[in-house]
Amino acid sequence: MVPPLALDIDGTLTTPEGTIAPRAFPLLAAWEAPVVLATGKAFPYPVALCQFVGIPERAIAENGGVALVDGHLDYAGDPERVDAAVEAFEERGGDLGWDGVDTVNRWRETEVAVSPTADEELLRDIAAEFDLAVVDSGYAYHLKSPDASKGAALTDVAETLGHDPGEFVAVGDSENDASTFAVAGESYAVANADETAKRAADRVLDRGYVDGTLDALRAIRDRAKNGE
């Protein structure tokens, strides 16, 4: 039997151009164990992806701030404190950095994503004042509660699914995946992963992005078929 999966999206199920890779869909749809999508994106994104892939809606969003599994929806963190910190950041000249309509944060409920072009030093100073954390996903700086993480959410999701988190295989590419790697029984960083993810993973894959992820999943599937 194949193990349950915890998969990041950006940089892990996407191409180098940042587009989702449909070639991963058949493998995920046929996976004979739970598949949980764990992302830094706002909640609607992984839910929609589950629908398009054709798998049950099992999603961890906003770096653990929101988790949905089999009809159970849970939240973590302190969004009011995050909003207060953002207000202070902007009052001191900070800019979230998203031009036009801010679709990055429009549906975000527990954290705020700040553009990589923003004033990181000011953001981290503000975060410290408000007892918040800043996580660099490679696509944004995420201002969030320190007790919310993908790993903590996966622990709760696994329990709801009747699994131990140590049964999961995790694949990811960035700092925000390190907490998932810490609780999963087996973890892979794709070749394009940042140094934090590579250090935290059990193995760094030879290829990057979705190609590396598919290499890992096919090897896991073949290993299960061979009874290893």
Rank of each mutant, 00 (worst) to 15 (best):
E91C: 00
D164H: 15
V190A: 10
K198V: 11
D119C: 06
G100P: 14
D119T: 12
Y209P: 00
A38Q: 02
G18A: 11
I20V: 14
G172N: 06
D95L: 01
A33T: 04
G54F: 07
L217P: 08
A184E: 07
E62K: 03
G166M: 00
V157D: 01
L13H: 05
A197S: 08
V204C: 02
R92W: 12
E121M: 07
D95C: 08
G40W: 03
P56M: 10
D119V: 11
G40M: 07
T213Q: 12
D156I: 02
Y209R: 05
N105I: 12
S137W: 00
S137A: 03
F43E: 10
F52A: 14
A84Y: 01
D156T: 13
D164S: 15
V35I: 05
D147Y: 08
E175D: 13
G100Q: 14
E57D: 12
E80Q: 15
F25W: 13
D147M: 06
P116D: 04
V69P: 00
Y139D: 06
A38H: 01
L7D: 05
L143H: 02
A42K: 05
L122C: 06
I9H: 05
H163E: 07
G64C: 06
F25G: 04
G94L: 11
E121T: 15
V169T: 15
A219Q: 15
A184I: 05
A200R: 02
L161Q: 04
R207N: 15
A6P: 00
F52K: 13
A21N: 13
D99R: 15
R221L: 11
Y45F: 15
G94R: 10
V69T: 11
N192F: 10
V183H: 07
V47A: 11
I220M: 07
K41Q: 15
A153C: 10
V114R: 04
I220Q: 13
L28N: 03
K144A: 09
G227M: 13
P22E: 14
E62R: 01
L49E: 08
V82Y: 03
G97F: 10
H163V: 04
L27P: 02
R218P: 01
A153W: 01
D211G: 09
P79N: 11
T213Y: 10
A33Y: 01
